[in-house]
Simulated scan of single mutants.
Amino acid sequence: MPLWQVYHPPGAYSDEQKRSFAEEATGFYARFGLPRFYVVTLFHEVAPASFLVGGRPSGDTVRVVIEHIARHAEDPGLRERMTGALGRLLARHTQERGLHCEFHVDETPRDLWMIDGLAPPATGSEAERLWARENRPVPYG
């Protein structure tokens, strides 16, 4: 599961812009075979008085915290390519709109994750492909 927490100034995103942003994030992972429902994007409006960068209020900063649980990038080259691709994705929704953006990725151990009481199926398994086709968790044996 990728969990995206997007902290942003009030009014930075309309409902349609949020959907577009979340859809692009979802598509990023779906192209690698992750079930679309794994991707959760949460938008948090933060007033400038409560969003301090360098100790000063900021009304133009977006801070994104991404938690990767379903997949981990072990290879340094892959990590660099992934970070670059995420940076380009985020730029379309931040820098290209005049907003400053900072992000980081945490990798949570996969064995500490469940959905509807089910441990997610193994990466690349038929059960994971079933979850992707159904776009929901399905009991598997």
Score class of each variant (00 low, 15 high):
141 G>K: 14
121 P>E: 09
20 S>E: 13
74 E>L: 10
13 Y>K: 06
25 A>C: 15
23 E>V: 06
137 P>L: 10
77 G>H: 05
86 L>D: 01
92 R>H: 08
103 F>K: 08
58 S>F: 00
44 H>M: 05
122 A>I: 10
127 A>R: 13
115 I>S: 07
36 R>D: 11
22 A>G: 02
71 R>F: 08
5 Q>L: 10
47 A>N: 04
84 G>S: 12
117 G>S: 15
10 P>E: 14
68 H>C: 00
79 R>A: 13
102 E>H: 13
62 V>W: 09
46 V>I: 15
84 G>V: 01
124 G>L: 14
108 T>W: 03
89 L>R: 01
111 D>K: 13
30 A>H: 14
44 H>E: 06
113 W>K: 12
46 V>N: 01
115 I>K: 01
50 S>C: 10
33 G>Y: 09
28 F>H: 12
2 P>K: 03
96 E>T: 03
125 S>K: 14
98 G>N: 00
48 P>S: 05
123 T>Q: 11
62 V>N: 08
111 D>Q: 15
107 E>D: 11
124 G>Q: 13
82 M>L: 14
115 I>H: 03
64 V>Y: 00
2 P>A: 02
101 C>I: 07
59 G>P: 08
27 G>K: 02
46 V>W: 08
129 R>E: 06
3 L>A: 01
72 H>A: 14
110 R>I: 11
109 P>A: 06
